[in-house]
Design a protein around this nucleic acid. Structure first.
Ligand code: FES
Ligand code: FES
Lengths: 150, 150
DNA sequence: TCGAAGTAAGACTGATTTAGTCCTAATTTA
DNA sequence: TAAATTAGGACTAAATCAGTCTTACTTCGA
């Protein structure tokens, strides 16, 4: 029940990208966040294939968030794969098997998954590249990471 | 981000024990739930050291839930160890380090942990060994697994 | 048009964790 | 005392994690 280093780095990278205002190269990002460069590259590539970041090759290229904002849930799912807290019935289909506590246990775990998903989907990382010139707010005051509560 | 087989088996075992009305041997429980016997024994021993089940040796011995009810959270913590979703700062103490996104990322993950804990602590497994003779309710109608909502 | 800066992708590797097994006690009760 | 049971530790095979290495391919600017 833990978040992998890969996902942790990915989260850090995403927050960092949201702070930046242009594409950032993997090397630069690795230095900023002290993440092993080659490993980070793999992570960014995965995030790209999931459509979370986009990349530009060549000089002055790099990675940037693909959308205005992305949820923490999306990033975790992309990097750690689907959360598997419960074990589906061994037999075929969705029919009940005959392990007395199987169904009841899975019910609890399924609820847990939903809870986690709901919580993490609500937490988003948003870039602040487009400066909101209408707003009287200073840029620094706009949160990069935000959640409904807090 | 998954629940280990160990924890999953432990959960199943606990639900099963809550259903039973006397101590159940590891062998019997393993058969009922189709869990590898030696492995289940290790799991039950861990649950015992955490005070979740109690054991009785010898003929007619076995395991039983130690308390009237136990939360799913307790079982998971006992078997999978503490949930570690975030990485504490590398330096000493609680002082901030200099990785731009470190603090913000950890804040999110810490909130996630709290959320999970809150959710799972609310789900409890309670035994129904003491028959409530005053109640008009039939025994079968008393839920072994319960949560505030649902 | 060439070379440097960059991403893309896959094979490979060492360390750790998971999911057990095996073996040898120690207890309890019939 | 023998059978049933838990107690605990050492051991192991397989999977996963955390990264590295290598070899491309693409883009831009000089
Ligand atoms: S699916 Fe196994 S008991 Fe319901
Ligand atoms: S502890 Fe690392 S930046 Fe705050």
């Amino acid at each position: 029940m833990k978040v992998s280093k890969k996902a942790y780095y990915g989260l850090r990278a995403a927050v960092s990208l949201a702070d930046a205002d242009g594409p950032v190269s993997a090397r630069e990002l690795a230095e900023r966040e002290r993440i092993p460069e080659e490993f980070l590259e793999k992570i960014l590539q995965k995030l790209r294939r999931s459509g979370i970041v986009e990349s530009k090759k060549g000089v002055e290229g790099g990675y940037a968030l693909a959308e205005q904002s992305v949820s923490v849930w999306d990033i975790l799912r992309a990097l750690d794969g689907p959360v598997r807290t419960f074990t589906p019935p061994l037999g075929k289909g969705t029919l009940p098997c005959d392990f007395p506590s199987h169904c009841r246990t899975n019910d609890v775990l399924r609820r847990l998954e939903e809870e986690i998903e709901k919580t993490l989907s609500g937490v988003t990382i948003s870039r602040r590249s487009e400066r909101n010139q209408e707003s009287g707010m200073k840029n620094e005051e706009k949160a990069v990471l935000s959640s409904p509560d807090s």
